[in-house]
Design a protein around this nucleic acid. Structure first.
Lengths: 132, 132
DNA sequence: CTGGTTTTGACAATCATTATCAATTAGCTA
DNA sequence: TAGCTAATTGATAATGATTGTCAAAACCAG
């Protein structure tokens, strides 16, 4: 059976109150800083649960950390990243979601996850490079 | 000054000869398996260099490993990868190509490249897991 | 060939994450 | 409300990928 613990609630609320993505470590630090004695392992478990039930999204930062964010109703999206200055723009990718699901099913794959990121030069860096 | 060493060449060739993405660890194993006494740290350094000079692309797998692939301008396609047995299926992604181009343009990005790969469990592994 | 640097590679260190496992606790039931 | 039972917690150890260290080896110019 699945139980409701204050720890899980704390993690959920901390996520809700966070703008954008946050790492498990950072979330744990934030909780500690605000006086919660919650354990690190528990934060990881709670985040994992939230992610697996679809209440949170997760992605991998370029440094290899797992980042999480509260899942708004429309949730899942991807990123457009400037390869020069690192600027990141969030983009929705509904056509891709469906495509990924369809392709996976077509080949008998289940539990499909996908990695979709677009790299390019942002407007500012394009200008800079044109000048240089 | 930048020197040419057989180790760096070995890494570059191993990458070129690899279909799709491969982890640094796997590449090192492959090199060892084919008789090369190259060190692990050197493989990491070489991959990092290749990635920073644009000769290779890198991405984070869902498991948090860094994956690399030779940056081939020819024969663009994507992959459907079984996260259990490693089976890889090549897939075409025309809808995604257009989508990526459109999204990049929409945000003022130029020189858009994209990383699109789908991870899942292939039919065989799905069966195995269901049984276990 | 020789000198001055860069690069290598074995190994230690680091960092995020996961597993372990005894102690605690939520939620049901009477 | 008290008690029972299984899920959950959390301190810590373990894991696994990646990076730092530094003496020895290799590269390249002269």
């Amino acid at each position: 059976m699945k139980r409701n613990t204050w720890q899980r609630e704390a993690v959920r609320e901390a996520l809700d109150g966070t703008e954008g993505f946050i790492s498990a470590q950072a979330l744990h630090s934030a909780l500690h800083a605000s006086g919660s004695p919650i354990g690190l392992a528990t934060v990881y478990r709670a985040l994992g649960d939230l992610a697996s039930t679809g209440e949170a999204d997760s992605l991998q930062s370029p440094d290899g950390e797992a980042l999480y964010r509260a899942c708004s109703t429309t949730g899942h999206h991807h990123h457009l990243i400037c390869r020069n200055c690192g600027l990141t723009v969030e983009i929705s990718a509904e056509p891709v979601e469906e495509w990924a699901k369809g392709v996976a099913a077509e080949h008998g794959f289940t539990q499909a996850a996908h990695v979709v990121d677009v790299f390019g030069l942002c407007a500012a860096c394009t200008k800079l490079q044109a000048g240089a």
